[in-house]
């Protein structure tokens, strides 16, 4: 167990440093890149804050594939399941499986967005298929 500040608190400290001390000194392309850096920190921060994300996704994929979650670290287990699912969807030929897969894929996509860009999934492009948006 490490002492405080925790990893998340250290990232917050780095973000404040970039925003309050470094940012005002910058101009030109560095302004944009520093904004990207701050975004990077917020992504990592949200990712660290959800430790249950990997096992949760692994359980969803294993259920879809009617298989057990592989032994070992959650990351390796998820990588194996992901590869198996990608291979099966690429092969195709099973419309019922595709249909069952879509909501599982969507749940995973939304969880990724919760880390990457909260709120991005407030908009849904499905309505654009026919008449066009608005």
């Amino acid at each position: 167990m490490q002492d405080r500040p925790t990893a998340v608190e250290l990232l917050d400290t780095l973000a404040s440093y970039l925003e309050e001390e470094v940012g005002p000194e910058l101009e030109g392309p560095l302004v944009y890149r520093t904004r990207v850096a701050l975004n990077l920190l917020s992504v990592v921060r949200r990712e660290l804050s959800d430790e249950a994300a990997l096992p949760r996704e692994a359980a969803r994929l294993a259920a879809l594939l009617h298989t057990a979650v592989p032994e070992g670290s959650p990351r390796l287990a998820l990588e194996a399941l992901n590869a198996q699912l990608a291979e099966r969807l690429r092969r195709g030929g099973d419309p019922a499986f595709d249909e069952a897969a879509w909501p599982v894929l969507m749940a995973g996509a939304r969880e990724k967005l919760a880390v990457l860009r909260p709120g991005y999934d407030d908009y849904d492009s499905a309505g654009e298929r026919l008449g066009g948006a608005s």
Partner: peptide, 10 residues
């Protein structure tokens, strides 16, 4: 591997 991209390709 990206299952979503595999799905899209198919």
């Amino acid at each position: 591997p990206s299952p979503i991209f595999s799905y899209a390709q198919r």
